[in-house]
């Protein structure tokens, strides 16, 4: 009965803890490991990264958009088109925060060993701003304007139009004025540098980057 009492107390502690979102049983970790390129130890190391990010502003064990922004840009505020899209894609349940499982699943696409198709698909969804299933001219224009403003570069309307027209001439094979997933895939496969940001070398050595996982590990791999 002592075991039952201890187990009950531990459960109660987890359920009432602000960090209950961080509680993942060994079975949860194995399930995540079986459906991603990560080992159980790597997922535990990612939990250390997740903990760090989830307490940047509000210490509630969840990653909010401001925390994502602070982690990536070192500043918590300001409008940013790309950050909004990255956040939306990570927040798969669309409930306004990124939970640990969403974090691991989204980051798994960035693993050096993740399938190229997953990277191509993620980038397509990232650039399909209005989520219509197509990347349209207006969306490409909006993203180019955002990157130019981020870099402080001025470009004439004619130059901007020329870049957009060249882009569609390169990719829009059926000439319907929008890029579908097949057209995007064909172009991305031929131009792998476009997907450079879709691979994070750090993820291959995540247990070295966050060695503190060892203090909470469930498995010795």
């Amino acid at each position: 009965w002592i075991e039952v009492l201890i187990f009950g107390l531990a459960r109660c502690f987890v359920q009432n803890s602000p960090y209950k979102h961080l509680y993942y049983s060994y079975d949860d970790l194995v399930r995540l490991s079986n459906t991603t390129p990560f080992t159980v130890n790597e997922i535990e190391a990612l939990r250390e990264l997740y903990k760090k990010l989830s307490r940047l502003i509000i210490d509630d064990g969840l990653i909010h958009k401001e925390e994502l922004q602070l982690a990536l840009f070192r500043m918590p505020a300001g409008e940013n088109l790309f950050l909004d899209r990255v956040f939306d894609l990570f927040d798969e349940k669309k409930n306004g925060f990124i939970d640990f499982e969403e974090f691991v699943r989204a980051l798994s696409v960035f693993h050096p060993h993740a399938p190229l198709d997953d990277k191509i698909d993620f980038a397509f969804r990232l650039y399909d701003l209005r989520q219509t299933g197509y990347i349209e001219k207006e969306e490409v224009k909006q993203m180019v304007v955002a990157i130019l403003s981020e870099s402080g570069i001025q470009l004439s309307d004619e130059s901007l139009e020329a870049i957009i027209n060249k882009t569609f001439a390169d990719i829009d094979a059926d000439k319907d004025g929008k890029i579908n997933k097949e057209e995007w895939k064909a172009f991305a496969v031929g131009h792998p540098t476009l997907l450079k940001n879709m691979t994070l070398a750090y993820l291959k050595d995540i247990t070295t980057v966050f060695p503190s996982f060892i203090f909470n590990t469930e498995v010795d791999e």
């Binding site: 982690a71 840009f73 955002a146 990157i147 020329a162 060249k166 882009t167 990719i171 131009h191 750090y202």
Partner: peptide, 29 residues
Amino acid sequence: KSPDSPTLINAFQLIGMSSCLDLSGFFEK
């Protein structure tokens, strides 16, 4: 197209340069 005309960049090559799409910031101290 004249041989002197500059080669235009594809918009996605530009967009891919955005620092906002570089998630390595997660791992930097």
